[in-house]
Amino acid sequence: MKKYVIVGLGRFGQSVAMNLAKLGKDVIAIDKSPIKVEEIADFVFQAASCDATDEKNLRDLGLRNADVAIVSVGEDISSSILITMTLNDLGVKKIIAKALSPMQGKVLVKVGADRVIYPERDMGERLAKKLASPQLFDLIELTSSHSIIEILTPESFVGKTLNTLSLRKKYKITVIAIKRNIPELSENGATSFKENILLSPGPDEEIMKGDILVVLGESDKLRIIEHIK
């Protein structure tokens, strides 16, 4: 099984570690703070409190065989650099390092990071896009020109079939799935609903109020769809 190492258990590191553990992965979580380590110890394969900038500590933890390491030691860039270098020297197969600026990112790549992530910048971008277009639920950029978006069905689509809407013809976009909640009553008679997903909907599929459309296409064209009422 793949072994994951998380160095730095701030909010980001802790979230990555917990989610990987929930997905059944072997996680080794490391932080200087014994309190943070204690908080996570019951949930992960191994948790250790040590100074990760000391090569000996990382070696003693047997990180040589680690498949993926995530370096997220907060704002202390010098520690990030040292840890990334050490993990690289130890032969960790893939190192993902968190950076706060493109300049930090460049340095981290130079010292051995395979991938640099900017969680704050990315979250800011996503939030801005979501706020600018309240219909938009999610966005995955496939390339610089193509994306998949999840949007709340515009009112003008409700009651029409995909064939009638001719989205492919008009905008060269494809509805690849529809997320639709199915109403039901629970055992005590209260209203409830079940989440459901319709993959590759056919041309005769009628769009219903509240549907989330998962749409693939050119990002420019998708932006038009986002603003249809």
Partner: peptide, 16 residues
Amino acid sequence: IETLYSVGILYESINE
């Protein structure tokens, strides 16, 4: 309460 809860569920089911 039952009605208020039902309206909450309705809006959530249509993603509002």
